[in-house]
Amino acid sequence: MNEIFFLSLKDFLLAAVVAIGFAVLFRTPRSVLWVAGLLGGAGHLLRYVLHFQIGSGIVISTLLAALFIGIAGIYLAHKVHTPPVVFTVPACITMIPGLYAYRTMLGLLKITDLDTARQDANNILLDTVHNFVLASSLLFCLAMGICVGILLFRQKSAKHITFKLRRRVIRYREKK
């Protein structure tokens, strides 16, 4: 149990560093860097727990983690008065399928050489296609998380999204 806690903590901290690093690269304002780190760490931790500890598939774990980042990002956006994309994009980048994209590329490189490809044709083709499909699916999941506001809340601006049911009911009545 202790070991799982330690591994989770390590995952959280490293993912937070990745998120802050990418946030600086994308020039996220200094005042909200911590939000990017927090969301990136928490999202990656959620994926780590779902995928490696509970054992659910990597695509569904990434989707849930990205949705978590998206929803928590909208909540935090109200607190710090900043549009959510500013920190949800670097937070989701922590889960970017770089390894799978890299393997796709290496597989394609191997296919360019016919002799190499013939040695183990079935595996090389299958691996390449699998890695390509996996990388694109994961990327799509990350984007879903970032635009969760439009997908679930039917609101174009995060400013109008509220988590309090009563306020939503009142707004609904006003619309009528």
Binding site: D11, L14, A15, G21, A23, V24, L25, T94
Partner: peptide
Amino acid sequence: ILIAVGLACFALCFTA
């Protein structure tokens, strides 16, 4: 930015 990128690559490799 340089230091941030270096740290991000370090952490990405470690988590992977």
